[in-house]
Design a protein around this nucleic acid. Sequence first.
DNA 1: GGCAAGACTGTGAGCGCTAACACTAGGGAG
DNA 2: CTCCCTAGTGTTAGCGCTCACAGTCTTGCC
Lengths: 336, 336
Amino acid sequence: MGATDARRPPVMADVAKEAGVSHQTVSRVLNDHPNVRGETRARVLAAIGKLGYRRNLVARALVTKHSRTLGVVSFDTTLYGPASTVYGIEQAARSAGYFVSIVSLKSIDRRGVLDALDYLADQGVDGIVVVAPQRSAATALTDLPGGIPTVAVEGGQAGGVPVVCVDQVEGGRLATEHLLSLGHETVWHVRGPSDWLEAEGRVAGWRAALAAAGRDGPEPLAGDWSPRSGYEAGRSLANMKDVTAVFVANDQMALGVLRAFTERGVRVPDQVSVVGFDDIPESEFFSPPLTTIRQDFDAVGRQSIEVLLRQIGGSGERERLVVSPSFVARASTAGR
Amino acid sequence: MGATDARRPPVMADVAKEAGVSHQTVSRVLNDHPNVRGETRARVLAAIGKLGYRRNLVARALVTKHSRTLGVVSFDTTLYGPASTVYGIEQAARSAGYFVSIVSLKSIDRRGVLDALDYLADQGVDGIVVVAPQRSAATALTDLPGGIPTVAVEGGQAGGVPVVCVDQVEGGRLATEHLLSLGHETVWHVRGPSDWLEAEGRVAGWRAALAAAGRDGPEPLAGDWSPRSGYEAGRSLANMKDVTAVFVANDQMALGVLRAFTERGVRVPDQVSVVGFDDIPESEFFSPPLTTIRQDFDAVGRQSIEVLLRQIGGSGERERLVVSPSFVARASTAGR
DNA sequence: GGCAAGACTGTGAGCGCTAACACTAGGGAG
DNA sequence: CTCCCTAGTGTTAGCGCTCACAGTCTTGCC
């Protein structure tokens, strides 16, 4: 007891004195160095327990130049997709022994991303995951401050950095092919904002599937991912006579589309079939339950950490991991 | 050019040499000390710019004992509520010049919360916000590791720490009173999990409103916040004859209830009125658009940081901030 | 002209830790 | 019996920064 007079937390030297060894030996025990006698190790451990010693990671970081902290830059973590991805990232990072420092941007322009990167670099993170679903964000990654390993999630062909993403084109294709296979003449599309790579990918998949079937693609309707924008697109679609199938770029907008159809008396799936994208927990309980494309955000998060850790470990290769989306059949689609 | 030979990043001493001053003067410039001549300051700033110097915050933290990092412990940041709260916290913290380190728990038991707290303490955070909506988490706060300022969000009467929360009882009352004022004989309730303080509060508000109107409260149906559990509760309710008004403890479960009613041909609001809780972005587009109680998660997040910063600043008082929920009228409720 | 009270700047020490090296004891090879 | 190697330990020197203090150089005022 009373080893240290003042009420300050014990430091390594206190433990050393308590155990009757040098502070370096304490350090060796803490770092699992092989050359410590079992009995000595036990004595040190006992002293640590007795004093309630906790190693000061800041001091450690200063000398090792590794903070064991990873940075995450994301856009609006209120949305289900980013939230799930960040969640997966955080879980994976923590189980690998890393802290996670998060910067949530409200607008994800070039400037914002670079500022966030700088900010995290200042803090001394060992690596950074940028959830960069927008083109402007992805291009910001071409000229990084340098030195800090970085991986992009959903970053398309982001310059020089490794990427982990879901195959959006494939997803768009799956949705569209499903609708065509039900006998629909053509498929309309409510797309996401034009700056988003995910939106682009889904449009490309939709176009590709239509082209492969020899069909004309109508002009896509623009949305901004929000239920409201889907609602507005849905009102427009409800006014057109020849619409029988719609592929909506995310589930939230699909909800808006369904709402607009309900208001106008358009029955889904009897008159119009609707497919969404994401498979948020709610979509199974929409009216009708929504057929959609599932993205495994959790896997994306986990894989991005795996790639980042390899990058920190020194693997120089510029990996590109693509996670496949899957089709989820529910009640919002039917044949002609 | 070539001030430093090696390819290592410049340190304060390099800047000092470049500007022809002592390292301490550089430090003073960086910390906005008053007693630095304008011309000297300019020279230092120029040297910083020329060398691309960035202060090493780890070294700074070692000596000041302040990391300018705040920790956040939360439960399942995939849910809209926690995600929004954490978002508000992060924004507020960053604009106050703090980094944010997040730990997202999957199960929020006592042990998990304490581990998370330890983990953050090791990292040297200056303060911690615990989003502790469950009783087991809240009680974990009664015996904190000590030393680190902490505030609880939604923590009920959590032991010794300041709390910021939404008045759940008031919300439950608002919802129930609205339904009673429409002429419903009584109001049924689909509640959240029993360990959650928010669920308890809403039940209490519902009970209080019924009691004030001299009505009997039927036994509440149990849910777990998920749309599926709401769906199951909805199926039970659809089987009962005398149900005309339901207050559901969150919007996601309300969606499930609506779905079950739709399947059974129960018309909302003609036959049954439904009120939700949270006002998630989707609820405006449910069928029918959901009358609900709005929680300002953003405000909660911001206020929790304000309280925490006051706590760090040394204000000893055990504040308790209550944010009022508000009523949002939509189309899922109607008179008898 | 002298001297105290500022303004401004430099020097030294040390935050708590790890890396590098120096040292001691014991054991097998020559 | 000496030598060297290895296992185990201690000693020293920083990491890059801020704090406390010690200067130096102005000013203003008697």
